[in-house]
């Protein structure tokens, strides 16, 4: 077979011949069994090459770590190493008055007010992006999206500053405290002392968020604690809202850490000397202390670095 012929076979098999040339070639092939044979061998060879290449590319992609269940970002390799820490220290001690409104003093971190009865719609408003939406936004790195979202964020910011952060439930035996913090993959630490400060802090974080909207613009996490009888020591993660159930009273604050480094990824709760992993995909889960000492040590280190 000469060079010319093999080129024509290639072109024929790769669909590069014009309709007229193709018909001419097929006519020639019909009368030439040897050519038929050659074409069928070449067809197999091209198929084999394709298969080898597809496997090679797949093997390449398989080496790249990805996960669809986690909600942190690993966008570009450079940023992935960064430790993302969201620390919201909530002074739990004074938050649970169990319907005893007289307990509230001016030093209370958050004022509990039972005149405002929140509706589910209101809660939705405070979490404007549904999970899916947030996903798409955080996946996008194109500039248009963060800009768009920046607008949204400003609205959201206003929401937060204007609306009381507390949402007592109609049922007075349960008290809900809701705080909002924003995380922009920056190392943030927030100690919230008064409602006003919450608003200020949120403002600040939001500003840094729009500045560094390189990727993963922000994530809104709503934390809600409930001292109720329905669950013991439980948590629930739903539509970007974290609800904690159980007795978080006493003098000690609890902390929420969002961590994204080489060894540890995920959301953790620190309370009374123990770390708990928060699975953001489950419904209501009892809290169990982590027992992997290595992870606990790492977490302790990160926590103390703040």
């Amino acid at each position: 077979m000469n060079l010319n012929e093999s080129n024509i076979i290639d072109d024929y098999l790769m669909g590069n011949l014009s309709a007229a040339d193709r018909m001419a070639f097929e006519k020639k092939m019909a009368a030439d069994p040897e050519l038929q044979n050659e074409v069928s061998v070449q067809k197999d060879i091209i198929k084999g090459l394709e298969q080898v290449r597809v496997q090679q590319l797949k093997a390449r992609l398989n080496k790249i770590p990805v996960s669809s269940s986690a909600w942190y970002q690993t966008t570009s390799g450079k940023v992935a190493l960064g430790v993302s820490l969201l620390v919201a220290i909530l002074l739990g001690a004074l938050l649970f008055n169990l319907g005893d409104d007289n307990n509230i003093t001016s030093s209370d971190p958050v004022v509990i007010n039972d005149q405002i009865i929140s509706t589910p719609e209101e809660a939705d408003e405070l979490t404007p992006t549904k999970e899916d939406n947030t996903d798409i936004i955080s996946e996008e790195e194109d500039n248009e999206i963060p800009q768009l979202a920046e607008g949204k964020e400003k609205e959201r910011k206003e929401d937060i500053t204007q609306k009381p952060v507390i949402k007592p439930e109609a049922d007075k035996s349960e008290t809900f405290i809701t705080e909002k913090t924003e995380n922009n993959n920056l190392v943030t630490e927030e100690k919230l002392d008064s409602e006003k400060e919450i608003a200020n802090k949120v403002d600040e974080t939001a500003e840094t968020a729009s500045e560094a909207s390189d990727y993963n613009p922000y994530r809104l996490i709503e934390i809600e604690t409930t001292k109720g009888s329905r669950f013991g020591f439980h948590y629930r993660f739903y539509e970007n809202k974290l609800s904690l159930y159980g007795d978080f009273g006493g003098e000690r604050p609890y902390e929420i850490l969002e961590i994204n480094n080489d060894n540890i990824r995920g959301l953790f709760l620190y309370y009374e000397g123990q770390f708990f992993e928060l699975d953001t995909t489950q419904v209501a889960v009892p809290l169990k202390p982590l027992d992997n000492t290595e992870v606990v040590q790492d977490l302790m280190e990160i926590k103390n670095q703040k």
Partner: peptide, 20 residues
């Protein structure tokens, strides 16, 4: 091919969601 790697990571969650 590094641009392919980049793309793979960038849209992994968005695309895998379609199937999941």
């Amino acid at each position: 091919e590094t641009a392919l790697d980049y793309l793979y990571k960038k849209y992994y969650r968005m695309m895998s969601r379609i199937v999941i």
